[in-house]
Simulated scan of single mutants.
Amino acid sequence: MTLLRLLWQIPVALTVLVSLLLLINECAMARAGHRTKDIPYINTGMPYFSPDRHTLDVYSPRDDKSHPVVLFIHGGSWNSGSKNIYTFVGRRLAAQGVIGVIINYRLAPAVTVPAMAEDCARAVVWTQQNIAGYGGDPNRIYVMGHSAGGGLAALLATNDALFMGRGLATNPVKGAILDDPGGLDMFDYLQKMEYPNDEQYLVPFGKDSTVWRTVSPLYHLQADTPPMLVYVGEKTYPSILNSTDKFRRQLQQLGIRHKFTTLPGKSHIGMVLQLFWRKNIIYKDLLTFVGVG
């Protein structure tokens, strides 16, 4: 009986130890940077302003240098998700000498994807105009996202019209880091409806096929599109495998500088969990990409 009790306690003790180590790691990361929470990125007097969805958090290294900026967009099938889940991304960026900007944006069914893209573009514009006050370089802004957020990040990097409409002469995005991105070619995806429950995506994307094409980054790629890092899980959804492969081939055809990496054995959720670990391949590549590593 004593042996059985001891064996039962081993996994419990291991769980406690792992939890303690993770907590220590998080505390160390938190000390490495400073978090400024819930900053509105549009005028709070606008009639559609949402105090929850139109805010962002800034994670800054604790020094007086000017740092590159990575704006991270969360996923969640365009109908869920929050910046508050991804504090670890901001902390790890700040701990490695990068300003992390983690944003919220409006979600379906309240709005459709074009409005989400507009929100994300507004967040980038706010960042360009204000990030110097947090130690960031407004001329080195990169976008990053997972899943639906990866698709939105790709759209910001490829669709200059999102910024021309905001009064900017050029697109301020210098590059994109896409982690198992969804929505790269919704024009093709929603025409085919190959998978169970695909009708659910007609809520965030609507039923107008011209809109599907407009919000699909694949159709905005041009020779002068900024460079990209693209990461895909070997065991992610078939739709993401297919669309990222088309995206990769188009990047190659247009001569756009990029790095495409498949992570063996990783599922869709596993791909975002990679960002919890400071020394994983995505962060290593990212640091070189933005000029830190």
Results as ranks from 00 to 15, higher is better:
Ser60Ile: 05
Trp78Glu: 02
Gly81Glu: 10
Asp64Lys: 13
Arg62Gly: 00
Gln129Arg: 15
Thr55Ser: 02
Tyr48Gly: 00
Tyr134Cys: 02
Leu71Gly: 04
Ile131Lys: 06
Val124Asp: 11
Leu56Gly: 09
His67Pro: 05
Gly135Asp: 11
Ser77Ala: 14
Arg140Met: 01
Phe88Asn: 11
Ala117Met: 14
Ser50Cys: 09
Leu107Met: 13
Lys83His: 07
Gln128Ile: 02
Gln128Val: 14
Gln96Val: 09
Trp126Asn: 04
Phe72Glu: 01
Ser50Asn: 14
Ala108Ser: 15
Glu118Ala: 15
Gly133Asp: 10
Trp78Ala: 01
Ile131Ala: 04
Ile73Thr: 13
Asp57Met: 08
Pro61Ser: 06
Arg122Val: 00
Lys83Asn: 06
Tyr48Asp: 14
Asn79Glu: 13
Arg92His: 14
Ile141Pro: 05
Asn130Arg: 13
Ser80Met: 10
Tyr105Arg: 10
Ala108Pro: 03
His74Thr: 08
Phe72Asn: 01
Phe49Ile: 02
Ile73His: 03
Ala108Leu: 04
Val89Cys: 05
Val125Arg: 15
Arg106Gln: 13
Ile73Ala: 12
Val58Phe: 08
Ile131Cys: 06
Gly81Phe: 10
Thr87Ile: 07
Glu118Met: 09
Thr87Cys: 03
Asp52Leu: 10
Ala132Arg: 15
Ser80Lys: 12
Thr87Leu: 07
Ile73Pro: 04
Ala123Met: 11
Thr127Ile: 09
Arg53Trp: 01
Thr127Arg: 07
Ser50Pro: 10
Val58Asn: 04
Arg122Asn: 14
Tyr86Lys: 02
Asn139Glu: 15
Lys83Val: 06
Gly76Phe: 02
Ile141Ala: 04
Gly135Glu: 11
Arg91Lys: 14
Gln128Tyr: 06
Asp52Pro: 00
Val89Phe: 06
Asp57Tyr: 11
Val125Gln: 14
Pro109Arg: 05
Gly75Leu: 02
Tyr142Ile: 08
Tyr134Gln: 01
Phe88Arg: 10
Arg92Asp: 09
Gly90Met: 09
Asn130Gln: 14
Asn130Pro: 08
Asp119Ala: 10
Ser82Phe: 01
Pro51Ser: 13
Thr112Leu: 04
Gly76Met: 03
Asn79Arg: 14
Ser50Met: 09
Val98Gly: 03
Gly136Met: 12
Glu118Trp: 05
Asn84Ile: 05
Gly133His: 12
Pro51Arg: 06
Gly76Gln: 04
Ile99Asp: 02
Gly90Glu: 09
Val111Ser: 02
Val70Met: 12
Arg140Pro: 00
Pro114Ala: 06
Phe72Pro: 01
Glu118His: 11
Ser80Tyr: 05
Gly100Trp: 07
Ser82Ala: 07
Tyr86Gln: 03
Lys65Ala: 15
Gly133Ala: 12
Gly135Phe: 13
Thr87Ala: 13
Val98Ile: 15
Phe49His: 06
Leu56Asp: 08
Tyr86Pro: 01
Ile131Arg: 05
Ala108Trp: 00
Ala132Ile: 13
Val125Glu: 13
Ile73Gly: 06
Ala123Asp: 12
Val125Ser: 10
Phe88Glu: 07
Ser82Tyr: 03
Thr112Asp: 02
Asn139Arg: 14
Tyr142His: 09
Ser50Trp: 08
Pro109His: 07
Asp52Lys: 11
Gly97Cys: 09
Tyr105His: 15
